[in-house]
Deep mutational scan, measured.
Amino acid sequence: GSLMYASIFGNVSAIIQRLYSGTARYHTQMLRVREFIRFHQIPNPLRQRLEEYFQHAWSYTNGIDMNAVLKGFPECLQADICLHLNRSLLQHCKPFRGATKGCLRALAMKFKTTHAPPGDTLVHAGDLLTALYFISRGSIEILRGDVVVAILGKNDIFGEPLNLYARPGKSNGDVRALTYCDLHKIHRDDLLEVLDMYPEFSDHFWSSLEITFNLRDTNMIPGSPGSTELEGGFSRQRKRKLSFRRRTDKDTEQPGEVSALGPGRAGAGPSSRGRPGGPWGESPSSGPSSPESSEDEGPGRSSSPLRLVPFSSPRPPGEPPGGEPLMEDCEKSSDTCNPLSGAFSGVSNIFSFWGDSRGRQYQELPRCPAPTPSLLNIPLSSPGRRPRGDVESRLDALQRQLNRLETRLSADMATVLQLLQRQMTLVPPAYSAVTTPGPGPTSTSPLLPVSPLPTLTLDSLSQVSQFMACEELPPGAPELPQEGPTRRLSLPGQLGALTSQPLHRHGSDPGS
């Protein structure tokens, strides 16, 4: 009898404990919600809404976190579960008819179910419309201010047509639940991603989709105040780019002037030289400038040598048109050559190039014969006009050509200096018209024969001689050997007369 009593008592207590286990969990969670309300000092109306929603959600799901349970299964099984949970929507909604099984599984994985109690606001006026909503159960109302403009029910759709707008718009009203509602919502990016994977279904979906109420604000059109608020930074940046392009296009129409201050000032006329910023005076940081632009901040801005204009002085008759350009485009679109090309026009420029290279940067340069637009006047290309890779490749080509020119210049200078040193070592320090008596009659020769300089066969020296023939050397430049009979510069000019005159010897006659 005691054994029977113990078994009955144990079973009854276990049954009672299981009955009250759900209630215990409910009270535990309710205590957490109330502690949250007390800690954050939530006001009474919002506090009442929180408690009511918790009670309804507990009775609806029995305190089970559906998302946590669903995430515990593998992905393939999750797709089947989501397809079952959203079967009513996918079967009865017209846009989803005719979709393949794979497309429906992908869509079912992207849908999220939302449960809303009465009085809950789903979308506020001015919120971004980031999702498309399908009503599965219940009814909602749409308000503009305090005026109800629409009441939607089961199988209705609200949001915005995503295929017509590249960016999400703003809501033009509040969406509030009238009863307990079940909503299926899919985010904008998720829907577009699935439709991109199934393009054959995309056309059918957009053609058959009928949005019951379009929440997009109709005033959000390009150029409206609301649109400016939504895309303020983007609009200002776009206007700045367009104004920069218009100014650079105007600059290219004036090829007669070359400016070292950047493309923003290349198009300024002579009357605007004294102004601080020219056409860019209202925004000094709008356009890029070269490193020399920092010198323009000092006094005497109108007389600054940074602004270059072609000189009108005539060229000498024998002067060549100019050196070879550094870039391939210089032959086609440049009416002034790079300062480095002028360094190779003569030997005198070679000796004085490194010492006063900055001073020569603004000297007169030889002109190319074609009066085409200036290379320095070409505006900086924006990322939309020329690819970045093209600019980098041009810079690399320019750097390689500069290296080759520097190597060639160093070799030419070394060769010229070597020839000058050899000339100085071969010439005796001094010569006299009267020579010392020699031991015999073989001493009648006034000077030792001097062998002429070897013929220069280097390509670089031939180019130097060509430049010497075309360029007029300055007075202080050293002379180079030329073709024809060679003669030492330090010898007297009348050596031929010395050989014809008898030598005057000093000596005593033994017979006297």
Score class of each variant (00 low, 15 high):
254 Q>M: 13
270 P>I: 12
185 K>L: 09
419 L>D: 04
337 C>I: 11
495 L>S: 07
308 L>S: 07
465 S>C: 08
227 S>E: 12
232 G>L: 10
407 T>L: 08
448 L>H: 15
328 E>G: 06
238 R>Y: 08
192 L>E: 10
132 L>R: 02
402 L>T: 06
214 N>E: 02
492 P>E: 06
143 L>N: 07
341 S>H: 13
229 E>F: 08
348 S>K: 13
129 L>E: 01
200 E>N: 07
505 R>Y: 08
407 T>W: 05
367 R>C: 07
380 L>C: 09
296 D>G: 08
133 Y>R: 02
200 E>G: 06
508 S>C: 05
265 R>S: 14
454 P>V: 08
443 S>E: 11
272 S>E: 02
507 G>D: 13
500 S>I: 12
265 R>Q: 10
401 Q>D: 05
348 S>Q: 12
130 T>C: 08
472 E>S: 11
183 L>P: 02
161 P>A: 08
264 G>H: 11
382 S>L: 15
181 C>V: 09
249 D>E: 12
498 L>K: 09
219 N>W: 10
370 A>F: 09
171 S>A: 10
386 R>L: 13
372 T>L: 10
215 L>D: 01
418 Q>F: 13
352 S>G: 09
143 L>P: 02
233 G>Q: 09
170 K>A: 04
510 P>T: 07
503 L>P: 05
493 G>Q: 14
356 D>H: 14
237 Q>G: 11
364 E>S: 14
164 L>R: 14
288 P>K: 01
372 T>P: 14
478 P>C: 10
470 C>M: 11
388 R>I: 01
167 R>A: 12
412 D>I: 15
231 E>M: 10
346 G>P: 04
258 V>N: 13
341 S>F: 12
370 A>K: 11
147 V>A: 10
393 S>G: 13
237 Q>T: 12
226 G>F: 09
408 R>P: 02
359 G>D: 07
467 F>W: 11
132 L>V: 10
269 G>P: 06
263 P>E: 10
452 P>N: 08
465 S>W: 04
323 G>C: 12
494 Q>P: 13
473 L>N: 03
262 G>A: 12
269 G>N: 14
297 E>H: 04
414 A>N: 09
494 Q>W: 11
401 Q>M: 14
382 S>N: 15
359 G>C: 11
333 S>P: 06
376 L>P: 13
393 S>L: 15
254 Q>R: 12
464 V>K: 07
288 P>W: 05
258 V>C: 14
250 K>C: 11
242 L>N: 08
510 P>I: 06
359 G>S: 10
493 G>T: 09
319 E>S: 07
471 E>Y: 06
500 S>V: 10
494 Q>M: 04
460 S>Y: 06
482 Q>F: 13
204 H>G: 08
287 G>M: 05
382 S>T: 05
491 L>P: 03
182 D>T: 13
236 R>Y: 09
163 N>H: 11
214 N>D: 04
255 P>K: 08
321 P>H: 15
189 D>N: 12
191 L>R: 02
433 A>H: 10
236 R>M: 11
369 P>A: 08
426 L>S: 07
333 S>C: 15
270 P>F: 13
315 R>N: 10
180 Y>M: 05
457 T>N: 10
243 S>F: 07
394 R>I: 11
